[in-house]
Amino acid sequence: MSKPLLAGIEAGGTKFVCAVGYSPVDILKEIRFPTTTPEETMTRAYDFFKECQEEYGPIASLGIGSFGPVDLDRRSKTYGYITSTPKVRWAGTDIVGFFKSRMDVPIGFDTDTGAAALGEGRYGAGRGCDTFLYLTIGTGVGGGVVVDNKALHGLVHPEVGHIRLVPREDDTFQGTCPFHGTCLEGMAAGPAIQERWGKPGIELPEDHPAWDLEAYYLAQGLAAMVLTLSPQRIIMGGGVMHQPQIFPALRRYLKEFLNGYVDRPEITEEREDYIVFPERENQAGITGALLLAQDQLGAVQ
């Protein structure tokens, strides 16, 4: 008996990643393309899945990890919608409904960072932990929280990128977030780096003061997350974190912010296995999306 064919979508604010496979790490075909308008982008994803079904056979289930905020409450009238996103034209988009009406398969749905966290938990840097935090620092700041090996949901879903920060005394920057100004995303995401320093982070040298300030703000946000979520590990991904010099400063500042209150060697000894880079890297999101699809079938991999 052949394995069921899984389909996954990592619906990012910048790009969509779509894939099919027989397991989250047995991908047969994958495509990546820019996120444009809802109709154009989702239709392109659906056309990809139609082509895959002609090549590999019927798709059994679909998993979607989407940028947000999204509605994850199955009792809600807007379950499966992208809600109050600042991304032009995507607010109020029924992303689950679009694919449900066309594919008629079970659909698993979560945030893009929630899906990526699940992917890292099963196949990457979160292995061995049942409670951990996954953050991505790029054009925005998003986070997925895994508790008891499940993505954390509640009233909505964790929006750790919008924790309010106290600006450092020598920093007068007012932040880029249209909702909260000096929140973690407003002060530490890629656009904040570019606006503050006049050029993107990739063009700044390793010893530029931007990176110490970046570590300071990230650590301030992480201190709040350590105190509220108590993660066994923190995984830090996204384009901004491709600056290895951030990590030692980040561990040092986290220790300073917690000031001995969380008396664990992971923090007090600034251990390198506590704040880590993702193992799945740019595959974490699509791996998690395929896991969401797999879970819809009750499969255990």
Rank of each mutant, 00 (worst) to 15 (best):
K3H: 13
P4T: 04
L6Y: 04
A11Q: 04
G13Q: 03
T35F: 05
T41W: 01
P58L: 13
A60V: 02
L62Q: 07
L62R: 01
V70R: 03
Y79C: 03
Y81W: 15
I82C: 02
D94E: 02
V96E: 01
V96M: 02
F99M: 04
D104W: 11
D104K: 15
V105L: 11
I107H: 06
A116Y: 11
E120I: 08
E120M: 05
G124T: 10
G142P: 00
G143R: 08
G143F: 08
L152Q: 02
P158Q: 08
I163C: 06
E169A: 15
G175N: 08
H180G: 05
H180M: 08
T182G: 09
C183H: 14
L184S: 05
L184A: 07
L184C: 08
A192H: 07
A192N: 04
K199P: 02
K199W: 05
G201L: 00
W211G: 00
A215M: 04
A215D: 05
Y217M: 02
Q220S: 12
L222T: 00
A223S: 15
A223K: 12
V226I: 01
Q232S: 15
R233D: 05
G239C: 11
G239M: 09
Q245H: 06
A249D: 08
F257W: 03
L258C: 13
N259S: 14
G260A: 11
G260W: 00
P265V: 01
P265Y: 00
T268M: 15
E270R: 04
R271D: 11
E272L: 09
E272S: 14
G285S: 10
T287R: 07
T287P: 04
T287C: 15
G288A: 07
G288C: 12
